[in-house]
Amino acid sequence: MDRRNEPTSPAGEPGSDWRVFEPLELTPILAAALEVFQENGFHGATVRDISRRVGLTVPSLYYHHESKEGIFAALLDLGTGEAAWRVRAAADAAPGRVDLQFVNVIQAIVLHMAHRRQLATLDNELRHLSPENRQHYAERRKEVENVLSGIVETGAREGIFTPKEPAETARALLGMCQAIVRWYRPDGPLTPDELAERYVDIALMTVGLSRRPGPRPPRRRKARVA
């Protein structure tokens, strides 16, 4: 029995702030598994290692998750689900302003990679997933790509952005942001917010904007003629 929907970290309640990252709240099994996967990789981790760390017998662990892959897939599902809702919320926060949507979405992706680095690094182990689980993960990951691609394509169509290949540009930007987990360290010189600001500047230059977009000035009312 695979209970991947057991309560875990915040799943993005309506009205949640996409910029705020509360401490990650995992079930004891998933918390222990994340540690073991981080230390040993998927191939080196065993169900016995995870059960010993969480203080359960192996049969008890199998009651909650049917296999090591099931545990791994649950963690991936959590990470991709959180990334997806944050990106959607970031885009929705700037209706009618594709330039500000772009800034928000890049910030959301970078902040997720920095704050949820442990979950995001599991992406490197995808080869161990079954085709069914890999397809599910690809679909969730595609949600983020579609939001970013849609914004870049709209901006190019409206003449705000200048890339010749908007969809390819969006994929390149997404790859750039996802690579953060390979080198970023929480105890390094950059905070997540500082990192996001730098990546926004790089992303803006990539789509042809040299300056950070600001809010539109308020419309002036026409004076009535007496």
Rank of each mutant, 00 (worst) to 15 (best):
D193N: 15
E145V: 13
V58H: 09
P186T: 11
A32D: 07
V98I: 15
S9N: 04
R88G: 14
L195A: 11
R48D: 14
R88F: 02
M1R: 10
D193P: 01
G44M: 02
L61G: 05
R219F: 09
C177K: 04
A138I: 09
S16H: 14
E69D: 13
N5I: 06
I109D: 13
N5A: 06
I29L: 08
V105P: 02
G41I: 08
Y184K: 11
M113Y: 00
L204M: 11
R221W: 01
G159V: 07
H43I: 11
P10I: 10
I109T: 12
R3Y: 15
L122E: 02
L76V: 01
N133S: 15
T57A: 09
H115A: 04
P7A: 03
R198A: 11
L56K: 14
H43A: 13
R97L: 01
V36S: 10
A91G: 07
L190E: 12
S67Y: 05
N124Q: 08
V47Y: 08
R48K: 12
E143G: 06
H115E: 14
D201Y: 04
H115Q: 13
L100Y: 11
L56N: 10
L129S: 11
N104K: 09
V207S: 13
T191Q: 06
P163T: 10
S16F: 15
R19T: 12
F42E: 03
A31T: 00
L129K: 04
L174F: 11
V98A: 10
G208R: 08
A45D: 09
Q135E: 14
G214R: 13
A93L: 00
V87E: 04
D77H: 12
A114H: 07
H65R: 14
P28W: 05
E145W: 09
E69M: 14
S210M: 10
E66K: 02
E39C: 04
D201T: 12
A196N: 03
L126E: 12
T57N: 02
Q118L: 13
A84D: 08
R198N: 08
K142V: 11
H65F: 15
G96L: 04
N124E: 15
L78T: 13
E145H: 10
R97K: 03
R211S: 09
S51M: 06
G55D: 03
T80W: 01
K142P: 10
F72D: 12
R224Y: 13
W183A: 06
T121E: 02
A156D: 00
R116I: 12
P186L: 05
E143S: 12
I151R: 07
Y184N: 11
W18G: 04
R86Y: 03
R211G: 10
G12K: 11
R52C: 14
E194C: 07
G175Y: 01
F161R: 06
A73H: 02
N5C: 12
S51Y: 08
E69G: 06
A90D: 00
L204S: 02
P189T: 05
A83W: 03
A179P: 10
R4I: 07
E125L: 01
L195K: 01
K68G: 11
G150V: 01
L30T: 05
L174C: 04
G214K: 09
K142C: 14
F42I: 07
Y199I: 07
R88C: 12
E125S: 09
F161S: 07
A138H: 10
R219L: 10
L204F: 08
K222E: 07
M113D: 06
E6T: 01
R216N: 09
S51H: 05
V47W: 09
A74H: 05
